[in-house]
Design a protein around this nucleic acid. Structure first.
Lengths: 339, 339
DNA sequence: CGACTATTGTGGATCGATCTACATTTTTCA
DNA sequence: TGAAAAATGTAGATCGATCCACAATAGTCG
């Protein structure tokens, strides 16, 4: 008994007051004399007492926002978490992260686990889970979905204008004289979900058509990891007759493409130009100097947290926030080589 | 009432049985007829019922392991989280991540928050928090500390042999003919805590002495981010008379050094050799091809999770697991240039 | 002084699960 | 057939907080 965690009763006994009195001190409630506060606070310090969140949760809200992210070693997720932390840091809400296996599709166990713990809202990056599941989840708990284009009346969305972003990339390459621009898309889940990668692909197709480049339109689909994109790029290059420019669906993937190009002795941008997406930390490194489309992940995280807080307090209708992408020109792109 | 979360009573009412009966089904306890299980499970599905973790936690263990990591965009932390997830994925335990501000030193709010939520054990990477605080925390809750060298009877440790790792780096450079080897250390918290960076620095000093290079011993201290190491390296180079080799305390930092070297037109390894630490994902990329010391973060995470589970079940005495570092030779190091 | 108001503190119901102790029904088998 | 054993189900205490309702005491003022 004395070895286990102290409870509010232990504190009350030590301070010689009632449990209710201790609770009032804890909650800064009305009706506490300075003398009593003194005694209770001393007892709390002596016992090292901290209230159990579970017992509190039985009666009150948890003041916690859950974040469910795929367990994926990408800089972009870290950026989002940073933004959420930033936004919550100053207020009374805490953040709890529940990672999940990236391949989830029917349900999302990370989100369910947060729901079981009664977080007051959930921020989620879950590109592959079923839209209908997401929608029904959001009917039960305020939900902010990051980086998905599915419309819904039930959850807020923080999303990048991926169509515009893809257009920026294609226009940039076209302006440099490139015609044979291949898109390496991470849109693996097919046309069902409106993942950012599906929209980027659509944006690419549109832009190519608009610029009269339909003939050289070419899409290769692969997973978003560096390794998978490396393999896809290698296969593409070994097929012979490689394109003069690659627009890759993510920086992470673009680094994989650069690896494949390096190995084959192809120079960037002299032989092949490369554009990424996300403007992650390494894109700016001189060893890469990757031209890329910025979507400002940290800002997206901050906004997501802000929307979650609003939803908890008052708002009822769903909202959408769109981040405007920007092209960041670096040295991985250049004029097309004269044949 | 009907709009709020369904409880076990709602399920009991819908199925026409008692609350206790539903509980038995939930827990797979003895004394449930197939017929009753059928009815209860149908009611659960219909209502979309999920038990509240808080109510469960009042009576039973939470089957959750908490992980507290600094909110820091480093690949190494992602590796550890991956390892923990891996290890827990197959069993009944879930994982919950509580990020905290990297600068914490008196207490660690991420760990406290997990303790409030009654996780059964905590895995923590917290290089800067006070050793005494860590020790007293571990007396209350099974704790596995990753990447700290403080001895303790109360927590388990998963640590890399940083002394040996530093020696590997120095020996490698010395074998290539380097004498003027500068160590860029991230040991910013001073000699108080036994952070991995403090031990790496000590290992560097020892190795230099052992090899008779005391005269050219040189340590620069800076933060571990790419940006901070970039600035420190730039300052070092601009001081004139630069060393022929850099041993940087992390890959992250080494990338910053490479940035500074690039900007000054210094070639790697022709002008300066560079060794990192961690063998993170990007080290192997041909654009970096960074020689580095591997400490196998994912394995460390897996081991940490394993130790945590052991501690929860039976073990009482503290244990230590040491990961053996290995030098990964790549192209950022080469023979010293003839003067 | 006496009535009224503030201030300070407490008792005990409550949240939603778990799980022991027990009651009731069904099955087994000598 | 009948007694013991097994199977099935329930009542109600319990975990540790919160917080309403109320009691006791102190303070104010005409």
């Amino acid at each position: 008994m004395s070895s286990s965690r102290p409870t509010i009763s232990d504190v009350a006994a030590a301070a010689g007051v009632s449990r209710a009195a201790v609770s009032k001190v804890l909650r800064d409630a009305y009706g506490v004399s300075p003398r009593m506060r003194e005694r209770v606070e001393r007892a709390i310090a002596e016992l090292g007492y901290r209230p159990r969140e579970a017992a509190r949760a039985m009666r009150t809200a948890t003041r916690t926002i859950g974040v469910a992210v795929p367990l994926l070693r990408g800089q972009f997720f870290a950026d989002i978490l940073d933004g959420v932390y930033d936004e919550l840091d100053t207020g009374p809400y805490r953040m709890l992260v529940s990672p999940f296996d990236h391949e989830t599709s029917e349900r999302n166990p990370g989100m369910e686990s947060l729901w079981d713990r009664e977080v007051e809202a959930v921020i989620v990056v879950s590109p592959k889970v079923r839209a209908s599941w997401l929608d029904s989840f959001a009917q039960r708990l305020p939900t902010v979905v990051v980086a998905r284009h599915d419309a819904s009346d039930h959850y807020d969305r923080v999303v990048n204008d991926d169509r515009a972003g893809a257009a920026l990339a294609v226009e940039h390459l076209a302006a440099l004289g490139h015609r044979r621009i291949t898109h390496l898309s991470h849109n693996v889940s097919g046309p069902g979900t409106l993942s950012p990668h599906a929209v980027r692909e659509a944006g690419y197709r549109e832009a190519m058509q608009r610029l009269g480049l339909d003939a050289s339109l070419s899409v290769v689909t692969c997973g978003g990891s560096e390794a998978e994109t490396y393999r896809a790029t290698a296969a593409l290059l070994d097929r012979g007759d490689p394109p003069t420019a690659l627009f890759v669906g993510s920086d992470q993937g673009a680094f994989g493409s650069l690896r494949a190009l390096s190995e084959r002795g192809l120079r960037v941008p002299d032989d092949v130009s490369v554009v990424g997406y996300d403007d992650t930390q390494f894109a700016s490194h001189p060893r890469f100097s990757l031209t890329t489309v910025a979507q400002y992940g940290t800002a997206m995280g901050r906004v997501a947290a802000g929307l979650a807080l609003e939803r908890i307090k008052v708002r009822t209708e769903a909202r959408e926030w769109v981040s405007q992408p920007a092209l960041i020109e670096r040295e991985s792109t250049g004029p097309v080589r004269l044949a």
